[in-house]
Design a protein around this nucleic acid. Structure first.
Lengths: 216, 216
DNA sequence: ATCATATATGACTATTTGGTCATATCGCGA
DNA sequence: TCGCGATATGACCAAATAGTCATATATGAT
């Protein structure tokens, strides 16, 4: 969760945040970041009022504009820091990866997704952020490429499964990866947002649904 | 697409639109509705400027506030009319339903979803509307219950499949329905938004993915 | 033609909000 | 203590925008 200094340095170079912001104590930077994610997620880009952000993050409006050139830059900052976080999170899953059968690989993917990382607690916040804040036309979404991070890894898992013969060879890897990602997303949604199923149910269904199909 | 008079009458009773609006010529009402869906979808609730809506729908601002008590009511109006449209659309699918095997049922669902109805051309617009406009806190979303319409029907299909033995009996109907809906949504998204696959591929994958599972 | 009622209109208001700036305060070296 | 660069602050400004209202125009019955 701590903001990576290297990322901030890069953002300064690209004039997305100021050097003044970079020099700020870490906890202040983090407060601004968390508040931005939360408020963008709750109210969308237009809905976030800078006055409220400042009040909530404990800074003054004058200071805000010494940290960020504009509101748009705040969004870009939040997107890019979040993107970096996503990347690190997938890297951690990758590091912990065990060599298992295809069936367990998918299950592992799911477990890693929700248990092994901080995303567990952050999921709701980030889910809202992605859904509500990222449609602002003024900011290119190139910075946040979910596919590049998570789905790239899913595809890799599936690709290996195909090569070892554990997964059908006639599936296109990236389409299957897309579907698996979407299904995991659907399950997460069901589990966290609707609270209609338990973790155990989720895992049971994920495996049987993906590997056994609908037919008996 | 034509606005149903009965729905409008109900909206008048609930003070969501005025009687003046009800008496308007149909094409004017429709212009306002379409413009609202488009702009809410493009810019979200806060992003929609009433001035722009008026310009685009060809009415004056003064008139607007003789049709709707407030901007919030415009959103509520759009939601409820859209909800009615959804209901009619599912009813049409239901009427055209053929008696088929489970495998074909799902495929039929999908085809009905994208081919047999106007949703084909409206999909993108409504997709945006649902995603960008419905998070406005001030308006209850009770009015738009996707599950009640589409997923209720999906569940019915699956339930019948289970009863005839075409679908595994150990699946919970509503969870399976949820997953099927999500997968269809994912495929639609892939097909329309990303333009990464053809209709034929979609159908192939839908069936093999749902019925054969990932494993060879 | 007249009158009454319903509808159309855009200037105007009050408020919100992104962004500025002059001033104050802090941190720190000498 | 003094001085200087960096940071903090909130009053202020200009633009945008939801909503109002007085006036104009259309409609339709007699």
């Amino acid at each position: 969760m701590a903001l990576d200094e290297n990322v901030i340095v890069d953002l300064v170079k690209r004039r997305i945040v100021t050097d003044t912001f970079r020099r700020l104590p870490a906890d202040k930077k983090e407060r601004v970041y968390r508040t931005a994610i939360n408020l963008f997620g709750k109210f969308g880009y237009d809905g976030l009022a800078i006055d409220q952000l400042c009040r909530q993050a404990g800074i003054s409006k004058g200071s805000f504009f010494q940290y960020f050139p504009s509101k748009t830059h705040l969004l870009e900052f939040a997107i890019l820091v979040f993107d970096d976080y996503l990347g690190g999170w997938v890297a951690e899953i990758r590091r912990n990866e065990r060599v298992v059968l295809a069936r367990d690989r998918i299950l592992y993917l799911y477990q890693a997704l929700v248990v092994n990382t901080k995303l567990f607690s952050d999921q709701q916040r980030f889910y809202l952020f992605i859904n509500n804040a990222l449609n602002h036309a003024g900011v290119s979404l190139e910075g946040l490429d979910l596919e590049r991070h998570f789905q790239g890894y899913v595809n890799e898992i599936i690709h290996r499964g195909v090569q070892t013969g554990e997964i059908r060879a006639d599936y296109e890897v990236d389409l299957t990866g897309h579907l698996v990602s979407m299904i995991i997303g659907a399950l997460l949604n069901r589990e966290y947002r609707d609270r209609k199923m338990t973790r155990h149910q989720t895992e049971e269904y994920l495996v049987s649904f993906l590997f056994d199909g609908i037919k008996a």
